[in-house]
Amino acid sequence: MRTSRLMGWLLVAYGCAVLAFLYLPLVSVGLASISKARYLTFPIRRYAYDWYGEALASDTVRDLLLVSLKVAGIVTVLSMVIGFLGALAFARYSWRFRKAYQKLILLPIFFPQTVLGLALLMWFNTVGIIPSWKTAVVAHLVWIAPIATLVISIRAYSFDPALEEAARDMGATTWDTLREVTIPLLMPGVISAGLFAFLLSWGNFPLSLFTTGADSTLPEWLYAKMVSGYSPLVPTVGILTVGTSAVLLALGLTAALIFKRARAARNA
């Protein structure tokens, strides 16, 4: 039973339409960011890049950027470590509470983030921690560490346990096995989990909203401005945020490609 060629092309066209639909709003934001007018209306009559200069020169934007970077950076490193170990427990080893553990890992991903943020705010308040960007790191990790665990688990599932057994058979200790076999083999998964972690933290708003205290991340600031009325800086900063993610993602994908090519060349 084959899908006919026509059907195949229709599906591809449909796929392209869905992609276009997903990116359409970003096109609007992009166009808005280069409109000269202070109050935006389409069609845009005059274009200008002034808002970018203004955004980059602004102290507020620099502070926001700094907070967002700090949070995302720390979240990335921590989720890679926690996720690596978590994934081994998730996918690789058979142990008593594995099934229950797998389900516990999934719960935070399903959980409404706004409520999670509020719950954490109450928790910090009750145990006497004053919210700042550091508490935001904790909030992000509740959601992102499980995701990192899942991403690495996918890699860990396709990992042949016999490899670890072979290493042990040749006299490797648990630590040797981890260092020589497990870590190198799971590395691609750990790196993509890191990329996921950074990007998800960088763009997250609902968790940051209640947990950053006096500090503020870029998405939070954007939201505040969106709700309180239009500012020409909103699309501009928005595009800058998106641009940063895009560059990072492009770097990540290129690195992965180069790595793959290099390995293929070595094997050839």
Binding site: V81, I82, G83, L85, G86, L88, A89, F90, R92, Y93, S94, W95, R96, F97, R98, Y101, L104, I105, L107, P108, F111, V115, L116, L118, A119, L120, M122, W123, T126, V138, A139, L141, V142, A145, P146, T149, T174
Partner: peptide, 28 residues
Amino acid sequence: RDRQLGLLYALPIGVFLAVAFLAPILLV
């Protein structure tokens, strides 16, 4: 060994979620 390692590796994220996810929900 599998059983011990599984439990050991599950500890960091398990403890973290207990403190930063389950406890706040109980508090709510």
